[in-house]
């Protein structure tokens, strides 16, 4: 039956309490940091969920017939619908133009009478080379990689693009000398 509860020295009482609060705060901050980090990770993972890995779209590489089928100065529109590509043969060779307008992605029409591609959405105009000359389009049409396969057919690879404003039309693959 101890009737006396001897008062502990004040210094000793303060010390452990302070340390407790300090460790409590460091635990709290650790908890908050890990909570925030895990929320960020969950957010990133959910965002990643929205980017599919497999696409149900036509393949990027396709064969486009024999180069002799193309006539000089005529825009070949056979692959416009199926593959979004125009084939153009000029004096020196062949190039594959993307049918996607560089403004907002509409499909321009080839107006042979006026010798230009004209976009119906916002009126951008491109020469037969793909260079933009009127309307809001900020840059020329893109070209796709073009090559000859072993069987003598043209092969277009839409996975490789060439942009004129970056000087890429001079690179090998942008133009097939023929």
């Amino acid at each position: 039956m101890s009737k006396v509860n001897p008062p502990r020295p004040a210094a000793k009482r303060g010390e452990p309490a302070d340390a407790g609060r300090r460790s409590f705060f460091s635990w709290m901050s650790l908890a908050w940091v890990s909570f925030t980090a895990s929320m960020l990770a969950a957010g990133t993972a959910t965002a990643r969920f929205m980017f599919p890995n497999v696409l149900f779209e036509p393949p990027l590489t396709f064969r486009a017939g024999r180069p002799e089928e193309l006539q000089v100065g005529i825009v070949d529109e056979r692959f416009k619908d199926s593959n979004q590509v125009w084939l153009v043969r000029d004096g020196g060779g062949i190039y594959a133009l993307s049918t996607t307008c560089t403004h907002l992605g509409c499909t321009p029409n080839w107006l042979s009478a006026e010798q230009k591609f004209k976009c119906p959405c916002h009126g951008s105009g491109f020469y037969i080379t793909g260079i933009n000359f009127e309307g809001p389009a900020p840059r020329p049409l893109e070209r796709f990689a073009i090559d000859l396969a072993d069987d003598g057919q043209l092969v277009i690879d839409k996975g490789r693009k060439f942009q004129q404003e970056k000087g890429q039309w001079e690179l090998p693959g942008a133009y097939l000398e023929f």
Binding site: K80, C106, T107, N109, P120, C121
Partner: peptide, 19 residues
């Protein structure tokens, strides 16, 4: 038809200010 862009192609009317 992804191949035939109608002429003109317009956004929904309430976004035509943006267009």
């Amino acid at each position: 038809n992804p191949a035939a862009t109608p002429n003109p192609s317009k956004a929904p009317w309430y976004f035509l200010g943006l267009q």
